[in-house]
Design a protein around this nucleic acid. Structure first.
Length: 631
RNA sequence: GCCCAUGUAGCUCAGUCGGUAGAGCACUUCCUUGGUAAGGAAGUGGUCGCCGGUUCGACUCCGGCCGUGGGCUCCA
């Protein structure tokens, strides 16, 4: 008899029993055996501690999707025997598998593969784990023509190679996996895409299939509904539908045109942002769009960033369309001698920059070639660094909360201590800066992730990701030290001691790029912006033509209070006008018919909430005005 | 940049075998004057992304270019 602890409870089981024998429940996918993740087929030993692993945990989902990717590979090999399998891991939203095939898969192939997967699932094919010797494994995959697997094994240091077999399909894999294909229930293959072997464009292009799977159809349906919701909120669709912005083939890819309604968003965001920044001691500046090549030599961009820069010839000299605002800000700093009494100096600019991005990386408003950064550079002394960083992080969080974001994920990127030579700046500078960033995050009390080796070469940084209404993460604010630029431009200040000292330079943005931020806001709110941001805050609608004069009076009163208001005096039925206003997501709809005209009221309807009944015009207006103030 | 898909009216999309194009919505006009998510009729609107080729003839077939979309090592 073996004595084992299962979910904290002691049990005895017969010798030779497997973990699978402990759980009748088929929702158990694998187990933790003494803390190690193992297959259900793993043998029990005396004194073992066993915890079941189900789909409801991250590791459970990972192995479930990993098993689903194997199931897909099995189906693909049956339908396309000439396919070579490459790699097939789980990813945060499902799984994929890469194949080398004579011609790439099509959407039609996906339906066939999915069908075969379901068939294999119904057959409950056993998934068996085996250990092979290195040579044995190489021979196995060589004989099957799986040269990608052979390459992978050749790069493995181990003498024992782990493989999984399900029916006619065998794959190199560390595991663990579900015990049989019947565990993979509700399956959906989503898309096919090209992917390079090892992600390197010098390698052959493989055909990748993405999919997702769940233990129940309900969970799959829910997941697909979430994907649908994301599609409905797509800023590219809403941008057109709400008349916010456009892109034009004749103007060039990645260049955004702001329509009146989109420009209102820009203006309101800027207005709120400027208010907060002036209160925090920032000073607004402006710098030119182009500058001589010389400046970019000084800054180092010529040497390291050239392939992303647009250049133009002027009188036989090369000028650069600015890809960054930093060098311009350095020049302004250098126009006078600075005393420690002037610091910290906070220079900020909504600076429009242009960067050549590879065509394949462009994406709606989220990734463009011309965009405006809410940029700032803070020049300070060593003593001021901590308070400067603290105020940057606090200001960032405050502003994002003002836009309705409540949840954040914070990354602290520090240098790789084993490769100190890769970085610019002294050990003292790095230690001090990293220490300060760490301390500030601790003091603020929000959880953060310390990413070793993720710092850029010129300094450590804090990145803040905001979480939107659909739980997606967007990295916007960043706060980074720059030990490089200060030296390149030889930035100095005069200290209390009368000596020159190098400044500490902090580079930061809150929104990142305005184009992208408006895209994020649009998706976060699904286009239904809060009243203070809404391009149109209220629309007055007459029930019949007989109320058009009264509607005009109401409209005038709202406009006199600086509300962004429209009037709908067309000869259409009120239901039609409401449908359109709802579709345009106008937050306040004011309906006036004969009764309202008689009583001097308006019927108030809120977007998404419906009819709130009649109110005196003054009261309705006050309610709107309450929501109009920037946060 | 590369792979795949894709580009037809302002928007969403049909268009068979190669014989120069359709629908719904939007827009304009007329009828309708109505009470909380789409009343009716008529009309306007297209160099079928661009350039070239094959053909008697190209939205359709071929080539190049441009745009758009999904992707391009979160370790077998």
């Amino acid at each position: 008899m073996l004595r084992v602890t299962v979910e904290g409870k002691e049990r005895s089981v017969e010798d030779g029993k497997l973990i699978a024998d402990l759980f009748e429940d088929r929702s158990v996918l694998a187990a933790r055996l003494n803390g190690r993740l193992v297959d259900l087929s793993a043998p029990l030993e005396d004194g073992a501690e066993v915890e079941p692993v189900r789909f409801d945990t991250e590791e459970g989902r990972d192995l479930y999707w990993h098993s689903a990717s194997h199931l897909m590979a099995q189906a693909v090999k049956q339908l396309f025997p000439e396919a070579r399998v490459a790699i097939g891991p789980a990813v945060p939203e499902g799984f994929y598998y890469d194949f080398e095939v004579p011609k790439p898969f099509t959407e039609q192939d996906l339906a066939r593969i999915e069908k075969r997967m379901k068939k294999l699932s119904q057959q409950r094919v056993r998934v068996e784990h085996r250990w092979l010797g290195r040579e044995e494994a190489l021979e196995l995959f060589r004989s099957r023509g799986e040269n990608y697997k052979v390459e992978l094994i050749e790069n493995l240091p181990d003498e024992r190679i782990s493989v999984y077999q399900q029916g006619d399909f065998v794959d190199l894999c560390r595991g663990p996996h579900v015990a049989d294909t019947g565990r993979i229930k509700a399956i959906k293959l989503l898309s096919v895409a090209g992917a390079y072997w090892h992600g390197d464009e010098k390698n052959p292009m493989l055909s990748r299939i993405y999919g997702v799977a769940f233990p129940s159809q309900e969970q799959l349906d829910e997941h697909l509904a979430r994907l649908e919701e994301a599609k409905r909120r797509d800023h590219r669709k809403l941008g057109v539908a709400l008349d916010l912005f456009s892109f034009h083939e004749e103007a060039g890819a990645g260049l955004m045109f702001w329509h009146p309604k989109g420009a209102v968003l820009w203006r309101m965001i800027e207005q709120y942002w400027v208010k907060e920044h002036l209160a925090a001691g920032y000073q607004l500046i402006r710098t030119p769009q182009i500058a001589r090549g010389h400046l970019w030599e000084t800054s180092g961009h010529y040497a390291h960033y050239r392939e992303n820069m647009y250049t133009l010839m002027v009188d036989e000299e090369e000028y650069v369309l600015k890809p960054m605002n930093c060098p311009g800000h350095m020049l302004i700093y250098k126009t006078r001698v600075h005393s420690y009494r002037d610091l910290p100096l906070r220079l900020t600019e909504w600076g429009t920059v242009h960067r050549y991005e590879r065509s394949g990386t462009l994406h709606g408003a989220m990734r463009v070639r011309g965009f405006t950064q809410d940029d700032a550079h803070i020049f300070c002394t060593a003593e001021q660094v901590e308070s400067v960083v603290r105020e940057v992080v606090e200001l960032s969080l405050k502003i994002l909360r003002g836009f309705g974001f409540e949840e954040f994920r914070i990354d602290l990127s520090v240098r790789d201590p084993n490769h100190a030579e890769k970085y610019f700046g002294t050990d003292e500078q790095w230690q001090m800066a990293e220490g300060v960033l760490h301390k500030v995050l601790q003091d603020i009390g929000l959880p953060f992730h310390r990413a070793e080796g993720e710092a850029v070469f010129y300094g450590p940084k804090i990145d803040i990701k905001l979480v939107d209404a659909l739980g997606r993460e967007w990295q916007c604010p960043t706060c980074q030290f720059d030990f490089n630029l200060g030296e390149r431009f030889n930035l100095r200040y005069t200290g209390e001691d009368g000596q020159h000292h190098g400044v500490f330079l902090v580079h930061r943005t809150v929104l990142g790029a305005i184009e992208r931020f408006v895209g994020i806001l649009t998706e976060h709110y699904g286009g239904a912006f809060p009243t203070w941001l809404a391009p149109v805050q209220a629309r007055v609608m007459a029930v019949t033509d007989a109320q058009n004069d009264y509607a005009r009076q109401v409209y005038d009163r709202l406009q006199q209070r600086n509300l962004r208001v429209e009037i709908d005096a067309r000869s259409d039925k009120i239901g039609y006008k409401i449908a359109e206003a709802e579709r345009m997501k106008v937050p306040w709809m004011l309906i006036v018919g004969a009764r309202e005209a008689e009583a001097g009221t308006v019927s108030v309807r809120r977007h998404g909430r419906g009819d709130l009944g009649p109110q005196p015009v003054e009261r309705a207006m006050e309610s709107i005005l309450e929501e109009v103030a920037v946060p």
